[in-house]
Design a binder for these strands. Structure first.
Lengths: 213, 213
DNA sequence: GGCCGAAATGGACGCTTGTCCATTTGTGAC
DNA sequence: GTCACAAATGGACAAGCGTCCATTTCGGCC
């Protein structure tokens, strides 16, 4: 009856968005099928029309979240300068930006991490900072450590990657638990303080440095 | 009272232990009252004899977990040397030790963080690395930065605390998501690498240093 | 041995859960 | 206009949920 056409595949995305909103606001435990379809404004049967089960809807929501994270990240990466320290800087700043880190994003990310045990289908998308992100960092760090007189540049690059990824993960948790106290600038300064300590030729307190030696 | 009495308080603890075991193994979402009493080997009514509700049992389990973390931590702290860098070292090593960081502990910690939204009673015990731990670190860092020619020693101490706590939190998540790949020694080395970069006079790659500079 | 009150039991309650399916609605082809 | 089929609906279902409470068990005291 309404002549504004109800597009077919759109309802799939509406369900995914409603699921993410519900998880962010009331948590995965309270996110029932009833809750999701109420938020989506659709009928109960829609979920099993577009998805095999509730779990597969959750997996699609996690995948959407995962893809959005990396799309944003790789977009920042492609617009950064090519020198390794600037690529690292771009990834860090994107990860802490107002677009990249919101309460909803931090919360859904954390919930999906927990839920992997109960919902195995989520596994491929529950670890936001997986090998894909680690590889970006590790390659960039290797380019830097190879030039230095480091006895084992590959090891140094791996350690720096693990430490940096852990710190970023921890800052997300910090933001999640104390969103009102969180300061993005301060968080970035803390990360660069650590990088400046490890690679003083390439990083300062404010971010990446042009080679100054 | 005889010390062998069929102890009122014992079944309370049995319920708490069963709850923690269930959360660690199958996740909070699948941890139902039926599941808990089956693991405890008790009857349904026991939960409401010892606790107001399921949520208050969860809160008691979170509190137990929280207390155990700090008991261990403060025990390590009391047995460490008093110089600030050694107190920091003791806290870090305890946090990453085989006793302090197990899969069960990491998982329950993570689940309680998520569950705060759905179960407000958990809030006081869901943030393991809260102001209490931060204060230990911040005081120690301040003792160090005050002696240095740092323009703002208090700020430096706060930044170092936030960065260190975030990194430890992130390492726990790393351990949780990839327990088979996790190496405690490597994790400690990564933390000390960062501390050595920031405070080279007090830390080396292997841990705290006696004042050498 | 008999009694009392606390400890413990487990069946039953009303609700909500995820899933299913018999219908209805809407669109494009002919 | 009519047909065919996909999209969408929402009521019904059994299973499982957290909670409650009438009943039974049991140790300590007279």
């Amino acid at each position: 009856m309404p002549n504004d056409l109800p597009p077919r595949q759109d309802n799939r995305q509406i369900l995914i968005d409603a699921t993410l909103a519900s998880i962010a606001q009331i948590g995965l435990i309270r996110t029932s099928v009833t809750e999701i379809i109420a938020r989506a404004g659709l009928s109960r049967g829609m979920i099993h029309l577009h998805f095999e089960s509730k779990e597969s809807l959750l997996a699609a929501a996690a995948e959407h979240s995962y893809d959005r994270y990396y799309n944003r990240l790789e977009d920042h990466l492609n617009h950064s300068k090519t020198a390794p320290q600037f690529r690292i800087e771009a990834l860090v700043l994107c990860d802490l930006s107002e677009d990249g880190l919101t309460e909803d994003i931090a919360r859904t990310n954390h919930e999906f991490q927990s839920a992997t045990r109960a919902f195995p289908l989520l596994a491929p998308f529950s670890d936001t900072r997986d090998a894909r992100l680690r590889t970006y960092f590790e390659r960039a760090f290797e380019e830097i450590t190879r030039e230095l007189e480091d006895p084992d540049p590959a090891l140094a690059a791996r350690d720096l990657t693990t430490g940096l990824v852990a710190m970023m993960e921890g800052l997300w948790v910090d933001f999640l638990l104390h969103p009102q106290d969180f300061d993005r600038q301060k968080a970035a300064r803390i990360v660069f303080r650590m990088l400046a300590g490890a690679l003083p030729g390439h990083f300062g307190l404010l971010g990446a440095r042009h080679r100054a030696a």
